[in-house]
Design a binder for these strands. Structure first.
Lengths: 208, 208
DNA sequence: GGATTTATGGAGCGATGGCACCAAAAAAAA
DNA sequence: TTTTTTTTGGTGCCATCGCTCCATAAATCC
């Protein structure tokens, strides 16, 4: 196949890649998102990415390294709405209201796999995949910690009572979102998820 | 190895099994629960069950059939607390309060794998495992429907306002429990899960 | 005891999974 | 043009996976 000119970037020495790395990474991400790490085979990946095993190995190192890159890509692209909303300008309750609504909407997009790649990945796996399991658990912990931070700010801003259990509340919303992700993967409708989020907001502490 | 007398039951004709079927099934259930279907290999299973491939095949048919049996065993034994509480005698709010508390407790037992086998299994898998994915999704749907039924009864009993969205509320508690299961698999403490459940109960509809 | 029935141990097998290697191709640099 | 650097296609490889087969062992039935 004739190598295509990808773009006008300053190129290094050797033969140029015949594929768009970012695009291939995106294809891999969708596969991993939908099928999980163990459910996605090397052949599945090379087929979806449109590259040969050698190109795969050359460009991404290994299946495991690719998975890590795919996770990063997910967080920076598809999962960006989370931090965007969390760090947006609004009172704390509104922020979490938006998070629930966005989760319902994003988890049921027609153009992407259902649910959330972070929420449901690596919860069960072979002992040999411990590194990946820990990677996903760490990402879940980071999301939850970001929620807790925003809630702490809410307490400081007077949006929440001073005695609010911010860690507990973060764990609650975090759990609810993960449960919504499972629902989405089971085919739940956007309306159903919106309702779950709406009910979840009823647990918001009294005091404002 | 000399075959052991398992019990005094009326025995059929041929050679008696050298292992306790229920016990082997339990061992398999724990493995599946902890590692998932794809994360558990045939060798892992035969080793944990203490039987040879031929005995395995003879007694359980295939890995997939064993998984189905293991799921049944989970529901009938380990997951029995769910229906026990749901069908217990108490007002509706108390029932759901108990469910949340029991989920927190059961998901963090020292003598069993963390979390819930139903909640987190088969959310991501290879296309070839579609049957198992659907099986787990169906079980999740059944649990949720059982919750909805109990809530409907609550409305009939006057425990809940007549305009309560029982399906939505069931979906909410269902999602929360699944999120708690993910938390448990990530190593969350019993106290943390209890707190999540406590906060979740704050979403209980007003009116009693 | 012999026939029949069921379970066992152990070896092996076809398919798949995840790479690994290598000669050739296509670019920049000299 | 030659050299150097990087990517590619294709093939091969070794381990694992999930069985499968078969000769043998241990029970009941006649």
């Amino acid at each position: 196949m004739a190598p295509k000119k990808i773009d006008g970037e300053r190129r290094g020495r050797g033969r140029p890649p015949s594929f768009d790395r970012a695009q291939a990474l995106c294809a891999a991400m969708r596969l991993f998102w939908d099928r999980g790490y163990e459910g996605t085979s090397f052949d599945d990946l090379t087929a979806a990415m449109g590259i040969s095993p050698s190109s795969f190995y050359n460009a991404f190192g290994s299946k495991e390294q690719l998975y890590q890159e795919a996770t990063d890509a997910y967080l920076k692209a598809t999962g960006a709405w989370f931090l965007d909303i969390l760090h947006g300008k609004a009172d704390t309750r509104t922020i979490f209201q938006r998070l629930m609504t966005a989760a319902a909407t994003e988890f049921t997009r027609a153009d992407l796999p259902a649910g959330c790649m972070i929420s449901v990945s690596g919860t069960q796996c072979a002992p040999g995949q411990a590194r990946l399991r820990d990677l996903m658990a760490r990402q879940r912990a980071l999301s939850e910690a970001a929620m807790a931070d925003r809630l702490r700010q809410g307490v400081a801003d007077g949006d929440l009572p001073a005695d609010t259990d911010v860690d507990g509340l973060a764990a609650f919303f975090s759990s609810l979102a993960r449960g919504m992700a499972v629902q989405a993967r089971d085919g739940a409708s956007r309306e159903k998820l919106l309702e779950i989020g709406r009910i979840g907001m009823q647990a918001w502490p009294a005091g404002r």
